[in-house]
Design a binder for these strands. Structure first.
Length: 156
DNA sequence: GCCAACGTTGGC
DNA sequence: GCCAACGTTGGC
């Protein structure tokens, strides 16, 4: 299957690109997704080796901080079954757990943050979902050419 | 099944 | 901290 490209949002004061790099094996479980559209992207779209724009949200300046890759395809998210977890879903059962997670692995941190403001001005990125007002989806598909443009921006 | 109320996200 | 956007919930 052809490699695909994604953007995943995270609040860097909760989990940043540096946190990912410092994890054992530079890997982490992407748990806690509780939105069906975002889940569907993970469950139905993501394969091992897909590339991810690692996006820092909420804490200014917001933007793409680096690149990660899918290290494990979707599998059940156990935090949905854990009453002590803030991601607990009382409707989930071991037999019927609607929530999944993937594993992501650190690839690189950009030498500089590619800010949302910048993404909005760059030719070729006009249709990127992340620049659209009110776009809250935390996991978004990215076109290969958009991914390449962001990489070049980061190195420029 | 409609839709108002409510809660959350996330840029600013 | 504000609030626009939008997803979810629940009454009917």
């Amino acid at each position: 299957m052809a490699k695909k490209y994604w953007l995943m949002k995270t609040e860097p004061d909760v989990f940043s690109i540096k946190d990912l790099r410092s994890r054992p094996g530079k890997k982490e479980h992407w748990d806690g997704v509780r939105n069906y559209q975002a889940r569907n992207h993970m469950r139905d779209g993501m394969s091992i080796g897909d590339r991810i724009l690692f996006y820092h949200s909420s804490v200014p300046p917001v933007g793409v901080a680096g690149v990660a890759e899918v290290a494990a395809a979707a599998y059940p998210d156990p935090t949905a079954l854990d009453p002590k977890s803030k991601y607990f879903d009382p409707k989930a059962t071991p037999d019927k757990n609607p929530w999944v997670m993937v594993d992501v692995r650190f690839v690189k941190e950009f030498p500089r943050l590619v800010t949302l403001d910048e993404l909005k001005t760059v030719p070729g990125l006009e249709s990127m979902l992340v620049i659209k007002r009110g776009m809250r989806l935390s996991i978004q598909p990215v076109k290969p050419e958009e991914f390449e443009i962001v990489l070049k921006l980061a190195e420029a």
